[in-house]
């Protein structure tokens, strides 16, 4: 599946589509408060855009999105989510109690932004993790 298909049409369409998909995915992630959608759905779309790149552009896609990047993004995003939980402990709340994340701010407002950042972290980690799974699977289980 890593091989590049020789098709100008596919090439052009992919190059045009991928940014659009990514913009839409970010819209889905950030509008989880108001409409159906959120981190998981948007993260899958981001991953799908990268997989589309992988299928259509072949080797070039590894320059745009390196092999190691997937697990890095996933690890860092999950780490930030965990730290978001620990910050509220620091200021006297319980784990993941967004109302305590920034002392002095209104609790309702803080919960709103807490949900927002949780969704963003989830979106990024789903993106990274799913691309990492795909990249591992297309190697076909090559073990030395």
């Amino acid at each position: 599946m890593t091989g590049r298909f020789e098709s100008v049409f596919l090439d052009v369409v992919t190059r045009a589509m991928v940014p659009l998909i990514q913009v839409f995915a970010f819209y889905i992630i950030t509008h989880g408060h108001y409409s159906p959608g959120g981190g998981f759905q948007g993260g899958v779309m981001l991953a799908a855009s990268i997989i589309l790149l992988r299928i259509a552009l072949g080797e070039e896609s590894y320059r745009r999105f390196p092999r190691e990047a997937g697990i890095w993004i996933a690890g860092v995003a999950t780490l930030l989510f965990t730290l978001l939980g620990f910050v509220s402990i620091l200021f006297g709340g319980n784990f993941l109690e967004y109302a305590y994340v920034v002392p002095g701010m209104d609790a309702v407002e803080l919960r709103y932004w807490g949900i927002f950042f949780a969704e963003v972290f989830i979106g990024f980690l789903v993106w990274g993790a799913l691309v990492a799974i795909y990249d591992a699977l297309v190697t076909g289980g090559v073990e030395a």
Binding site: I133, G140, E143
Partner: peptide, 13 residues
């Protein structure tokens, strides 16, 4: 499912 597929690939290999 993802983990199962990777196990399946190693089995196939």
């Amino acid at each position: 499912t993802g983990v199962a597929l990777s196990l399946l690939l190693v089995t196939q290999q």
